[in-house]
Amino acid sequence: MNLIDVYINEVTRRLPEKNREDIGLELRSTIEDMLPEDSTEQDIKVVLNNLGNPAVLASNYSEKPMHLIGPRYYDVYVSLLKMILPIAAVVAIISLLAENIFNYNEDQAFLSVALMVLGKGIWLIIEVFIQTFFWLTIVFAIIERVDNTKDLNPLSFNGKKWTPEDLKSVAHVPRKKAVSNGYVFFSLLWTAIWVTVYFNADHLLGVYQKGENGLQFVMPALNQPILNAYWPVVIICVVLEVALALFMLFKKQWTKNIALLNVVKELVGTISVIVIITNVAIFNQEFIVYMSDLLNLNENAITGYIQWLTIIVYPIFAIWNCIDGYLKAKIN
C-alpha cells in the first residue's frame, strides 16, 4: 500500500491545493480497481507503471504549460532578443570605452590599458547578454502564464493575429522617411558621448595649453559639482533620447508619433539647457577671470555672451530638428 500512497502524493503535491483531495481519491479508487484481490507488490508496480511518471500525470491534470515560452510568443520573443542583444552590447561597449578614454591617465602604458579594456569588454558583453536574455525570458515566461486566452495562433509584432494588413508595415518605406539602424546607433552613441562629457566636464572642457607633452589641460571651464547637481534633469533627457531611439528602431520610419516625441525631447532638452546655462554658478570663476583678461572684457560680459549665445543658438537647432521630423513624417 505504501507505494500507492507515495505515488498519489507525488502526483497531488504538484497540483493546486483545491484539487488535491478529489484527484487523490479518484486516483486511489482507480488504482484499486486495477489491482487484483490480494495484490502483491509486483502487481502494484505493474499498475503504477501503467499510470506512468507522476510528474507527467500531474502536468496533464494541471493546465499550466510545461514550457517557458510557447509557440504563441516564441516568434516575437526571438525577434525581440535579436533586436535587443546587439543594442545592449553596443551601448555597454560604448559606455565602457567612454569611461576608459576619458579617465585615461597618461602614466599608464597605452597597450596595457587597451588590453584591460578588451578583457573587460568581452566580459561585459557576456554579462549584458546573460542579463538581457534572463530578463526578457522572465518577462515572456510570465506573459505566457498570465495570458489565458485560448487562442494559440502565433502573435505578430503588434500583439494581434497576423493579417495581410501587417504587410503594409513591412512594405517599402520611402528612403527619406526611413530611419536606418545606423541612425539609431549614432543617436545612442551621441547620447553616451554627451552624458560622458557632461559628467567629466571638469577634465575635458576648459583651457588647454601647449606643454612639454603636447596639449595640457590647465583649467576647467565649468564647475563639476554644480553640473552634477542637475543629474535628474540629465536622466530625464537621456530617457527621452533613448526612448526616441528605440521607438525609431521599432518603427523604422518617421511617423507623426515619433515626430511628436521628438518635439517633446527637444523641448525638454532646450528648457534644461537654458535652466542650466542661466545658473552662473556652473562657470568656474578662475576660467571667467582668465577669459576676461584674454578678451579684455568684464567678467559679467563673458558669462553673458556665453549664456545668450546658447539661449539663441540651441533653440534654433532644436526647432529645425522638430520641423525636420514633421516633414519626414509627412512623406508618403
Binding site: 484527484i23 479518484e26 482507480t30 501503467n50 507527467v56 500525470l57 496533464n60 491534470y61
Partner: peptide, 12 residues
C-alpha cells in the same frame, strides 16, 4: 489510451 492522458482528460 495512455491512462495518464485519460484521467486528466475526464476532468477537463
Amino acid at each position: 489510451i495512455e491512462q495518464s492522458t485519460l484521467y486528466p482528460l475526464l476532468r477537463r
